[in-house]
């Protein structure tokens, strides 16, 4: 496409393809109530627009890397792991994370146990720590099925489990937020915490992935 032609019909570039979609204007009652409520809160000084902006930016900055960092610390430091499993909310304060008053709860996978998290009633997720949940986590399909046929759902994610591995589903119905502590992959003995954290995926923190793969040393 050239940019120096006179702007007349008949030229060959496609405006439809370069057009950026705008944010849609709120039209539903629910959306309009949201707009009005926000305006009122700011007008009444409950919070300021700047505080709202900063909060959104902080929430948007949360990502699974935070969870990976916690997992890598637990793999490297048995005493931290013990504190993490006993009281996750307190333990992650050591790394500078605070989710209170939510009770952050870490569940450990073992050779005989696989944990997976769901919120059947809505989409509870430790968002302030791990960022936005994946779209499938919020889907009715996942929420309805993973409680009653977890092995079938896990198989669709590529997790095949023998019958002697217990599957434990955690339904996040109230004030707890969950993260899985996946198993440390074999062959990672020499890795430091930063390299270990790089092995941890978002889905392994939810439980829809079980086996983590050490990166090929030649590729590093």
């Amino acid at each position: 496409m050239t940019s120096d032609h006179p702007h007349d019909p008949g030229h060959d570039h496609d405006h439809a393809r370069t057009f950026q979609p705008d944010l849609s204007e709120p039209t539903s009652d629910a959306a309009l109530i949201g707009v009005a409520l926000r305006r009122l809160m700011i007008e009444r000084g409950v919070y300021s627009a700047e505080e709202e902006r900063a909060t959104i930016e902080r929430m948007a900055g949360a990502n699974p890397g935070n969870g990976a960092r916690i997992v890598a610390r637990a793999w490297s430091d048995p005493a931290f792991k013990e504190r993490l499993l006993a009281d996750g909310a307190e333990a992650i304060k050591e790394l500078g994370y605070d989710l209170s008053p939510l009770e952050f709860t870490v569940l450990e996978n073992t050779d005989r146990l696989h944990n997976v998290v769901v919120c059947t009633l809505c989409s509870c997720y430790p968002r302030a720590l791990l960022g936005q949940s994946p779209a499938w986590y919020k889907s009715k399909n996942y929420r309805a099925r993973v409680v009653r046929e977890p092995r079938a759902v896990l198989a669709e994610f590529g997790v095949a489990l023998a019958d002697d591995v217990e599957v434990r589903v955690h339904d996040s119905t109230a004030e707890l937020r969950y993260m899985i502590l996946p198993q440390r992959p074999a062959g990672t003995e020499g890795l430091d915490e930063a390299d270990l954290a790089a092995l941890v995926t978002r889905d392994s923190l939810i439980g829809t992935q079980r086996d983590l793969t050490p990166k090929d040393p030649a590729a590093r």
């Binding site: 019958d163 591995v165 589903v169 339904d171 109230a174 707890l176």
Partner: peptide
């Protein structure tokens, strides 16, 4: 608040998973 553990085989009549599978709920 408590976490309560339920047995999947008792929860769903047609549960197809293993006998030891569980579900924890708040």
């Amino acid at each position: 608040l408590y976490r309560v553990r339920l047995d999947q085989k008792a929860l769903w009549r047609d549960y197809a998973g293993a006998a030891g599978d569980t579900l924890d709920i708040e």
